[in-house]
Amino acid sequence: MAGEGFYQEYEVFSRRSDTSPMQYQFSLLAPNAELALVMAQENFLRRESASDIWVVKRSNIRKMTLDEKESLQRLDNKEYRNTKGYGYLKKKWRQYEQGMLDEKEIMSWGGKQSDENPHS
């Protein structure tokens, strides 16, 4: 494959820690992905930690046009998709003398040894 010039556009993404999502940083010019990668951290993350970096050639990104961005709009009527639409359950469970297993409660379970004794 023939080269396309020194000034190729690369988009740089990084993850702050192993558990953080990939985040867009900025773009840089480099002749190829390897050099883009060795320059990425020092250009955009000199004062931040990173546990991973991706460089993506810009021409490989399919972006949205202005018209297409219009397609991102939605009505605010989708309560059935969220816990918001099921808030009445809290009251219901109270009638059965049970607590509600809400998001806060469920997200707190992850992998932890349970110290709760169901018979107490």
């Binding site: 020194f6 840089l28 010019l29 480099a30 050099l35 060795v38 320059m39 020092e42 250009n43 000199r46």
Partner: peptide, 11 residues
Amino acid sequence: PHIEEDVAFSS
């Protein structure tokens, strides 16, 4: 030779 490299080299 290149602005981006200038920055990396300085680090």
